[in-house]
């Protein structure tokens, strides 16, 4: 447990270092200019280095778990800090039921968005929406086909009404 949480900060820090160095290296390719007349590269390089340094800081101060130094904040007496709120919010996300695995949700939610992007120019709104709804619903292993189909058709009608008829957007309804 302890090990795993430490790794999370390490991974996060490494990600920041990688992104920061990438920004700095790419930024180096633009004109740096002078301090008086900064070129296109100055700010990106500076920010990239800063991000890498911050990433290093995240790794070095990586803490196991939630024991955060900010517990010395003024609200200490009540043991109430924004982190408690954060934790509450996390509980909201996690508890309440044994939800499906987050990776499954991630996959189907992203797939649903991707399918929308691929299909909307070809199939039009009315056919694309139910397909995307179907894919998104797969994130929930308990979803049943008939209600999902009805939901998809309902949403197709609703979005067509709001966006195309109501706001007059130029979207194809059918292929």
């Amino acid at each position: 447990m302890l090990q795993r949480l430490t790794t999370r900060d390490t991974l996060g820090g490494l990600l920041m270092i990688a992104l920061g160095l990438a920004a700095a290296v790419i930024g180096r390719g633009y004109d740096l200019g002078t301090l008086r007349q900064m070129g296109a590269g100055w700010f990106p390089v500076a920010l990239g280095i800063l991000l890498a340094v911050l990433g290093l800081g995240v790794i070095l101060t990586g803490r196991p778990g939630h024991s955060v130094p900010a517990q010395d904040a003024p609200a200490q007496e009540t043991a109430l800090t924004p982190e408690t709120a954060d934790r509450n919010a996390l509980q909201t996300d996690g508890d309440g039921s044994a939800g499906p695995s987050p990776l499954r949700s991630l996959f189907f939610v992203l797939a649903s968005i991707g399918a929308f992007a691929l299909l909307i120019p070809i199939l039009g709104l009315i056919l694309t929406v139910p397909i995307s709804v179907g894919l998104a619903s797969m994130a929930d292993p308990k979803s049943r086909p008939v209600p999902v189909l009805l939901l998809g058709l309902g949403l197709a009608a609703l979005t067509s009404a709001i966006f195309v008829l109501g706001l007059g957007l130029q979207m194809d309804l059918l292929p």
């Binding site: 649903s112 968005i113 991707g114 909307i120 929406v129 999902v148 949403l155």
Partner: peptide
């Protein structure tokens, strides 16, 4: 929730697409 979250996915997609009619933005 099984009704709510697919609806939100759709609103996100249609909303983003409607800005520039660009599937690139949706990706």
């Amino acid at each position: 929730y099984w009704m709510l979250f697919p609806a939100v996915v759709i609103f996100i997609c249609v909303g983003v697409y409607s800005i520039n009619y660009s599937t690139f933005d949706v990706f």
